[in-house]
Design a protein around this nucleic acid. Structure first.
Lengths: 172, 172
DNA sequence: AACTGAATAGTCAATACTGACTAGTCAGGG
DNA sequence: CCCTGACTAGTCAGTATTGACTATTCAGTT
């Protein structure tokens, strides 16, 4: 229900239409959710059917008509519940990049090390991007700081793994 | 393609039937992938159709017949490609738990802090579980170490966030 | 020899998600 | 005043994923 929490949270601050929501999520919240357009419209339909949000047909100039969504009192109650659950809980993080690590013995040690150095560069690029991101308004700033903290920790760990692999290889 | 990489990597070491694969993944690789039963069978079917793996009908005692899967030469080639891609690349981590943080201003500061303290306990429990996990064979050990490293970093960050919230609240 | 709970082995209907597409509008250049 | 590329707004068909279910076997108990 994380995506629902996100959409409700945004609609709670102001009524918006689908495209507007999408744009905001992609520009401000890209660091914590990956929400594609069809998924967003799907969720909006579902939440409207559940009575969490309502909409009216809006028109602006000659543009095609669009639905402007608003949160309902039931939606606000759901938002409050989901928010509390989210803040109190913890969902363990899975690193899909660890699968390769588990099978790295299938390659010559030197090649694994070379590939992991490529990975290190990729991580560094993400870190630079997050570090130099323009300040985001409100709570989104925290998300960027979290991402930076995490990427620093990842880089540290990756360096350690590479070092250990080099030492193990040298000893053979 | 991470799950495919995982299944190919396991079948590469020895032929196995679906249930056996599932069990191994859930017991040894639970820290890095979440693979449900129907998904695993779906992927096995798909990979068999693509010619990456083959199977023969096996029977053991009176047990129901089952498919024992083996990797094919094409599958081995795919495995090598996926492994290199995985080792060299980096997929940014999304923390769904950050969504709540972005909206924490919707609750009284004291309640947010209380809820985040609950989260801290949950993180600590995961950390204790990962720290005391019995040694896993081969590459899986690295995954646990990564998880521990990550959880320590998360705990640090969470403490920092809670502290900052308390200070901000005290200043009002 | 019947019963119970756990393990084995898988399937299916329903849900969730996404790549690729449609279709109209607007701003600016030629 | 027509063309082009970018923006707005959304849909749809196909793929991926999962909760819930079926059905058999085995070990131990009564």
């Amino acid at each position: 229900m994380e995506r629902e929490l996100l959409l409700l949270g945004l609609l709670r601050e102001q009524g918006m239409h689908g495209y507007q929501l999408l744009e905001f999520v992609e520009s401000q919240m890209a660091f914590c959710v990956d929400l594609k357009k069809p998924t967003a419209y799907f969720l909006l339909d579902k939440m409207a059917a559940s009575g969490w949000i309502s909409f009216e047909q809006g028109q602006e100039g000659n543009r095609p008509p669009r639905r402007v969504y608003h949160i309902t009192p039931e939606g606000e109650a759901v938002f409050q519940r989901l928010l509390r659950e989210n803040l109190a809980g913890y969902a363990p993080t899975r690193f899909v990049t660890d699968i390769g690590l588990a099978f790295s013995h299938a390659l010559p040690a030197q090649e694994s090390i070379r590939l992991l150095n490529e990975r290190r560069i990729a991580v560094k690029e993400h870190l630079d991007a997050a570090s130099t991101a323009p300040p985001h308004p409100g709570g989104a700033q925290l998300i960027i700081e979290h991402q930076v903290h995490h990427l620093v920790s990842e880089l540290q760990w990756l360096n350690d793994v590479i070092l250990r692999m080099q030492m193990a290889d040298a000893h053979l």
